[in-house]
Amino acid sequence: MVARLHQDANGTLHWLDRDGEDHAGVSLVRAFPLTAPDEAICVVGVHGNELHEFASLAALDDEQRRVIASALSDREFMPVIERINSVSRRWIPTVWAIDTDHGATDLALDSEEAIRRIDERTLLVRDARGICFLIKNYPELDRRSRRLLERFL
């Protein structure tokens, strides 16, 4: 029996394990959502217990990958900042007007710890509402956005 992940008509995620047991209502969790989003994606049961780990997506067939992608997109919200249009002030607290991959919005920064460096290229910005914004490829942002951003780093 091959273990599989599938979504039923109601959108509930099921994990059919090797022994043929069906676990309904499971969720997918990335173990390293920032540093390695596509590695170690875990299937977690309703009680928070881990049922399975997909060590890498590459080893899976297209159909599984599609289920995983759609399940993850249902629960993940981490907009990627593409452009900083303006900042209300050059020091914290401040409000940035930004463009993201989910559209334009305002981001209120209220503490210095809100900006976290993940690695050389990636930054994580947590706004006052608690939403995490991601800045990927920070050195490749446009000049103006980079300039505005650098005042806060």
Binding site: F32, P33, L34, T35, G48, E50, C132
Partner: peptide
């Protein structure tokens, strides 16, 4: 895994 950013 229950933490919002997992191991990160």
């Amino acid at each position: 895994l229950r933490l919002p950013l997992g191991y990160d």
